[in-house]
Design a binder for these strands. Structure first.
Lengths: 188, 188, 188, 188
DNA sequence: CAATAAGCGAGACGGTACGTCTCGTCTTGCT
DNA sequence: AGCAAGACGAGACGTACCGTCTCGCTTATTG
């Protein structure tokens, strides 16, 4: 006996409408002001259809992250051949896109989501891991730019991202000089 | 002439009761489940007395932080004379106190508060600045332990704290080896 | 085509619980001390369920009136065959039941409700109209007791009820002699 | 020893400011939306100064009535020599001034005040009594217009006023024909 | 090819908390 | 002592969402 139950299967249209509505509302209102009822209305979907598949709004957001509906590709560090300059660019770039001290900073919203929902937290973290674009960039620097072979790739990545998060939380910015000092200290 | 008005003056008893109730509830339930009504009830105070002086629960929490009602003294790094070992101890220690992956991690609650409230964010950040215990510890290492004079004190502090925050958000831990790699990369 | 919507239908149980709770509280505490929160609590119902169907407490009370939950049947005048004696009995009887000068006089509460809510006012008035028991009683007197055919039924009824209301508002009573004078003047 | 206490005596300026503010607000917002705080603010007076002298807003309104700040003189029936026509005029006139079915009907507000406050109720009633302008008018008709000597003056007055109150509560009007029927029934 | 059972939209339900308003009391400093 | 000002504990207001629960409709599988 297979475990096919009778009746219709999950509606892909509803799933997509929910995720897209969530992404839309998340970016326009932030995580705190995101509500299940708002998502349902925006998606033209019954509330039960959300609750049937996700236990909480945090989990819907986590799925949005997974589908790449929340974070832009600009998060990938540039590759000019100068690892230090590239990382400095990446850091200062973040604040233009995600973490402006004013406004409803998207990055702060994601941090709030991660603080409130384990799945979101783990998801974000795993996107920084050994297979992330940041790690790739550092590995490339080791092979092609003579960066020290024993550079602890993951720790360096986490330190950089962590510093950015801290600045986002404090509603301040990292100016270029500060970013250079940070990268300098980390990469020797 | 000063601007002394006539009429009753702010009740210090109410102010204290509110801050203490807030700290108590914050630690037992976390930031998300902290409510203005709960604080008022716990403090034995009318809601209006809270709203009269603080615009939102985030601001009450910010004042709790300022009064030292939320964070323990164990946040001060040890001073054994070995800066690297002390920082590693501090990092791994944090997770025993504040950021256990299970439970309502106090640190995650503070992060949520900071993400949702600018004052909390700035308050936390300023407690890491040039006058913080972390900066003091690094400065001491420069003077007494031969740490490189050009070590960027603030950036190193932020990288460490940021890495801790990132791990707290991801519900993971920094084991000693990882902490050592991080400190090693930062202090050369 | 009828306008049948899909989805759940109004809960009759909730409707009844609300009206009964309202009647209970109205009679024990009076209109002024009746609160939406009190009704909701007494009925075991969410406040929104009340606000969904009635815009104000006055309208809930109006529905109670309509359902006969507030006024007893003793408001029907007796029919002994002597219209004057019956009306005098009715008037003096009212004060024993509804308008005792002390206490939270039910009649005064209904007047307050009518003053504050158009629906209640209209409802009470329409229960005095051409189809009321008072009008029926007077009509019967015209047919069977030789009361003047041109007696203005509605005006007489309103004058009597109005005089009762006025006495209720003034916290006084109509003793039998006064009632007899009033009825005498009205019915010639 | 006399019972002169030390300290300032009651401020007549404050008393007047309160009564005038009350009358102003009563007429613009109605009894229900009249608040002690609103009166104090409008009068430029501390709340305690009101509570020191009046136990509730109803009592302040009662004093306003007593001082004639609420009801206009147009309540006096005309004296053309035709008692029936004069009373009909008076009745229909009331609705132009006080009891228009739309709007915040001043008369309904006074009824609400009387329903909620014994003093207001008694005050209104006593202004209808043996010494009232209505009674005077009827007495004059007995002496000068040949109205029956045994006309029960007070009961007739109360029936008329009561009928008006009832119509005010029901948000309806008395048109001239109805008023004439009522007066006809009462005065024979 | 019914019968059946799940997914779906809509939205009512019992609740909790929001932020505001007003109550009646109390406190302060001035007159 | 009276007063203007206004903070205080209390609690109701009307609204927004929560997560659960019917409804009546549509759709796929299974006997």
């Amino acid at each position: 006996m297979t475990d096919h139950r009778q009746g219709p299967v999950r509606s892909e249209a509803a799933r997509l409408a929910i995720l897209e509505a969530t992404a839309r509302l998340f970016m326009s209102k932030g995580y705190d002001h995101l509500t299940m009822e708002g998502i349902a209305a925006e998606a033209g979907v019954g509330k039960q259809t959300i609750y049937r598949w996700w236990p909480s709004k945090g989990d819907v957001v986590a799925d949005c992250l997974l589908d790449g509906l929340l974070l832009p590709d600009s998060l990938r560090p540039p590759e000019t051949g100068d690892i230090r300059a590239d990382l400095v660019d990446w850091i200062t770039g973040i604040f233009h896109v995600l973490a402006r001290p004013d406004g409803e900073g998207l990055l702060r919203s994601i941090i709030a989501a991660a603080a409130g929902n384990a799945d979101v937290g783990r998801r974000i973290y795993s996107s920084l891991g050994a297979t992330s674009s940041m790690a790739d960039r550092i590995r490339k620097a080791i092979h092609e730019e003579g960066l020290a072979v024993d550079t602890p790739i993951e720790e360096v990545g986490e330190a950089i991202v962590g510093a950015v998060i801290l600045r986002a939380l404090s509603r301040s910015t990292i100016e270029e000089a500060g970013a250079r000092r940070l990268v300098g200290a980390l990469l020797g």
